[in-house]
């Protein structure tokens, strides 16, 4: 077999590129000059031009429409499934200890106090079947920043979309929604929530539902206390956290670890009434009555924002509580 001249070997990549429309102008020029003088390479060049023509036909060739649409439909249903299962999360340090935040496409689905171990082995996320976990960066970081502002008292609302699917039942979800409606700086009781959702005898079940609150802080179960004013429980035995969270909102508790209770004498009282009047704690015996239907408020501004008016008897507007 005749050996190709060296110059032809060297120009071959440029020749192929030029013939298939893939060369820069300099290379095209070199190839042009070469094939003017070299018949063999001119033949090669035209052969590659022909191949390029066939490739044009290949580019235009229709693909199997049926298989393509099957692929698209399959993808759409798998994507819908993945979307409903995908939960991204990240754990952060906080003044309350390590906190894990998780969110799905629907909204924030879990806020969890992690124990001292840094792994997720004890997280509730591990116990939810069917969930696909993904550690995430920026999106959850933004939630974390807002949470820190909240814990410093620089932010009064966490207006996050919530995904309540991790709650255990519809009853639990109803409890969580009613709890989420309790405003910053207000406190009410388990019995009050039970009445609110139309299940006045379900006080214990309400307490149980809040014990499993998947979104502490965000769904402010720390604002729900016993009818006696006792803080009762919080996220297992974290009663100290409940005190801290309430203190951020201007609500003080007194007593020791085992008998923490709200300092009612420092709070305005609102007992549901048609005139929407709120009272000083010294109005009659209101501060001694069970908190059941009563909401405690840390400030007059809060009472105003809830559409309440000062009681015409005790006149909290004329005798505001010392801050």
């Amino acid at each position: 077999m005749k050996r190709k001249p060296q110059v032809c070997v060297e120009i071959e990549p440029d020749l192929v590129a030029a013939a298939t429309g893939d060369a820069d102008p300099g290379a095209v020029h070199r190839v042009e000059q070469h094939i003017d003088a070299c018949g063999a390479c001119r033949g090669e060049f035209h052969r590659y031009r022909e191949i390029e023509g066939v490739m044009g036909a290949l580019r235009r060739a229709p693909s199997e429409a049926e298989s393509l649409s099957r692929a698209l439909h399959g993808l759409e249903s798998q994507l819908a499934d993945l979307r409903s299962r995908l939960v991204s999360y990240r754990a952060f340090p906080s003044p309350l200890g390590r906190i894990l935040i998780a969110r799905s496409e629907h909204g924030v689905s879990l806020v969890e106090y992690l124990d001292s171990r840094n792994d997720l082995s004890t997280s509730r996320l591990r116990r939810i079947p069917g969930v696909e976990l993904q550690e995430d960066g920026a999106e959850i970081e933004a939630l974390y920043r807002e949470l820190m502002e909240y814990l410093r008292g620089d932010r009064k609302r966490l207006e996050w979309p919530l995904d309540l699917r991790m709650a255990r039942s519809d009853f639990h979800r109803a409890v969580l929604r009613a709890t989420a409606a309790i405003p910053y700086g207000a406190v009410t009781s388990y019995a009050g929530i039970a009445a609110e959702i139309g299940r006045p005898s379900a006080t214990r079940a309400v307490a149980q539902a809040l014990r499993w609150n998947p979104l502490p802080i965000v769904v402010p179960c720390h604002r729900i206390i016993g009818t006696s004013g006792a803080l009762t429980g919080y996220s297992g035995d974290k009663i100290g956290l409940k005190r801290e969270l309430l203190a951020v909102e201007g609500i003080q508790a007194v007593g020791g670890r085992s008998d923490s209770r709200i300092a009612r004498e420092t709070l305005y009282h609102y007992e549901r009434n048609d005139a929407h009047e709120y009272c000083l704690p010294t109005c009659g015996d209101i501060a001694r009555r069970p908190i059941g239907p009563i909401t405690l408020l840390s400030s007059r501004e809060l009472a105003n924002s809830m559409g309440l008016v000062p009681c015409s008897a005790c006149r909290p507007d004329l005798h505001p509580l010392a801050v």
Binding site: V16, D22, V28, E44, R47, E50, G53
Partner: peptide
């Protein structure tokens, strides 16, 4: 492309449509 060139050896290919401007830059590099 070299392998394709070899595999099409001996096959007559239609040449219409690509001859008029062999050096046109069909696509930028």
């Amino acid at each position: 492309l070299r392998k394709i060139r070899t595999s099409l050896n001996g096959h007559e290919l239609p040449s219409g449509g690509v001859e008029k401007s062999p050096f046109s830059m069909e696509r930028p590099r």
